[in-house]
Design a protein around this nucleic acid. Structure first.
Ligand SMILES: [Mn+2]
Ligand SMILES: [Mn+2]
Ligand SMILES: [Zn+2]
Ligand SMILES: [Zn+2]
Lengths: 146, 146
DNA sequence: GACTTGATGATAACGAATATCAATATCAAA
DNA sequence: TTTGATATTGATATTCGTTATCATCAAGTC
């Protein structure tokens, strides 16, 4: 199902209304395959339409997360970012602590091991987040000898 | 090396001073094997000594982290917590999203797999955090049939 | 003991997330 | 199409944990 259709179904299902602002915000978000903060998305949307408020962007992102279209990414810098989720494979992040550049990582084996651990403790897994911090190849250049 | 000794060596090494307040705060922290927020530690220290300020507790916790005695734990609820690190094995967390109860988990295999992934991308690992959220046995009781 | 300068405590500033509220838009029903 | 109940909106206030400020105080050196 198309992401936009899924969102509109979510709205109807919740008794929420389809508005010009939500439409614009969702369209812009879906077009960008990036990790966006509320402020960043607000700035982008604002370029097209001066009549969209920050609060509405924040509220719409929350709805997008609820609807399963995006998920919150939190690298611990005090800013929530949002990334596409619907139609995207689960992944974790490997982040450079120098420049912030990150890559998305995935390992079937890793995921399986995690599930085992969870079961072993009698928990039922809902979701997880693995953030690995390190130095990227570019930032590590010429640092071989410490 | 004793944790307290390590901390004092850290202070000297940094040209920092050993004070009555730092002593008290570190003593209390080291005695408690828990995940503590600044506010929580402040409240506990305050019971013994009314003359310790919140800012000093916050600053001392930062020093404790710098010195390697503790590390920051962030479950994404907007509050930094601190846990013992020195003399403690690395571990990750499995957290109940209903009641907040958590267990500390560790898997050698999991850690190895992560290292492999990091290497594969040319990064140099510094640290990582894996938080798994789910429902604990107690909260999941009677919920087998959905 | 005096001096240099780091440390302290009270509180202000900060910043992102969230709440508030009067005005407005949606949309189902008439 | 018009109406009316109410969800939505934008501007802004509030919240709350973290961090900065600064006058006063104390640790450590001589
Ligand atoms: Mn991602
Ligand atoms: Mn722990
Ligand atoms: Zn880098
Ligand atoms: Zn629980």
């Amino acid at each position: 199902m198309d992401a936009k259709v899924k969102f509109n179904k979510f709205l109807i299902n919740k008794g929420l209304r389809q508005t010009k602002q939500r439409d614009e915000i969702v369209n812009v978000f879906l077009r960008l395959e990036r990790h966006l903060s509320t402020q960043e998305l607000f700035d982008i949307v604002r370029k097209k339409d001066k009549d969209v408020g920050y609060a509405t962007v924040a509220r719409t992102l929350k709805l997008l997360a609820e609807s399963g279209l995006c998920r919150v990414v939190d690298f611990g810098d005090g800013v929530q970012r949002f990334e596409h989720k619907y139609g995207h494979e689960h992944h974790d992040h490997l982040i450079c602590s120098k420049c912030g550049k990150f890559v998305e990582i995935y390992s079937k084996k890793l995921e399986k091991l995690q599930e085992e651990l969870v079961r072993k403790h009698g928990y039922t897994q809902e979701y997880h987040k693995l953030d690995i911090f390190g130095i990227c190849p570019r930032c590590g250049k010429g640092k071989q000898v410490v």
